[in-house]
């Protein structure tokens, strides 16, 4: 008791005191149940990628594989051509991220650091992009892409992806750029830096924390995108399109399917393990606009 009076009780202490132990156990059971609902399908996918059909079809549906067969990974690599799919997806993602970052930093600089009439109006105009669904552009873009002769190339995906990530890029950069003191711009101006010099030498280097957030957001948008990817390309496949086209509804080679799915999922989950907080933050940035 004496100890408690020395250190003020935190909010957590109240909860721990107040929450009935039975209720607490029930809460944990519920949380654990939901954990299982989330993890078990993924665990199952992981294990059946190593199992023989005999095991999958009845002998060992949910357990660990008796023998870890890596052969399905080899088959998936060769037949689905996972390396090519990965290469395409990475190429599209990297270039899209680069374009989104450069274009949104430039626009944000003009919208927040340079003073001119109508800049709030232009800003709200860009923010319209947060609510426009991809569907709005699907048909006209298809036509434009065909006419421009970039159908079935990476540019047929990069240009739309960059355009649709732009609004979020500007929204995120505005937040980060607002934290850089205006004194820096003025000092640079006195030192004879023009607007371009200030932008490139002063502002851009200070925006590195924003780059991660924009990069993650854009990456997840284009890495998993399917509607445009399946419409604007045929031979140039990204991972979702390749996986979808290769496995019809009634594929019997479960091991190969499992191996391909695990390979397709693995990079995202690996990044998530290391950057979970940053990834969660970049998703929250998308909703706070209100």
């Amino acid at each position: 008791m004496a100890k408690e009076s020395k250190t003020p009780m935190t909010i957590d202490d109240y909860y721990i005191k107040k929450t009935n132990p039975v209720v607490k156990v029930l809460i944990y059971i519920f949380l654990a149940f939901w954990l299982l609902v989330n993890l078990f399908p993924l665990y199952w996918m992981f294990t059946f990628s190593f199992k023989t059909n005999e095991e999958i079809y009845g002998k060992n549906v949910a357990g660990l594989p008796h023998e870890w067969n890596w052969q399905y990974y080899k088959i998936a690599m060769e037949r689905v051509n996972m390396i090519k799919l990965f290469g395409n997806s990475i190429l599209v993602a990297v270039i899209t991220i680069a374009i989104t970052i450069i274009v949104s930093l430039m626009a944000t600089y003009a919208l927040t650091r340079l003073k001119w009439r109508g800049r709030t109006l232009v800003n709200s105009f860009f923010m319209l992009g947060l609510t426009i669904p991809l569907h709005a552009a699907l048909v006209p873009l298809y036509k434009a892409i065909k006419l421009a002769g970039i159908f079935d190339t990476m540019w047929a995906l990069i240009i739309p992806y960059a355009a649709f990530s732009l609004a979020m890029g500007i929204l995120i950069s505005t937040g980060f750029m607002g934290e850089i003191p205006m004194d820096l711009d003025e000092a640079a101006c006195i030192d004879g830096c023009g607007v371009w010099g200030t932008f490139i030498r002063i502002i851009c280097p200070l925006m590195t924390p924003a780059l991660a957030t924009i990069g993650i957001y854009t990456f997840l948008q284009c890495w998993n995108e399917f509607l445009f990817a399946s419409t604007y390309t045929s031979a140039f496949k990204t991972i979702p399109v390749g996986v979808q086209q290769f496995f019809g509804q009634h594929t019997t080679d479960w091991g190969v399917v499992g191996a391909a799915l695990v390979m397709a999922t693995f990079p995202t989950l690996l990044i998530y393990v290391f950057l979970s907080r940053k990834i969660q933050e970049s998703f929250m940035a998308g909703a706070i606009k209100g």
């Binding site: 939901w34 954990l35 989330n38 993890l39 890495w223 399109v241 799915l261 397709a264 995202t268 998530y272």
Partner: peptide, 16 residues
Amino acid sequence: VYFMPVLISTIIIGQL
């Protein structure tokens, strides 16, 4: 863990 499925491609989730 609860957030994890959001990151996985819907195509992969569909196949699963």
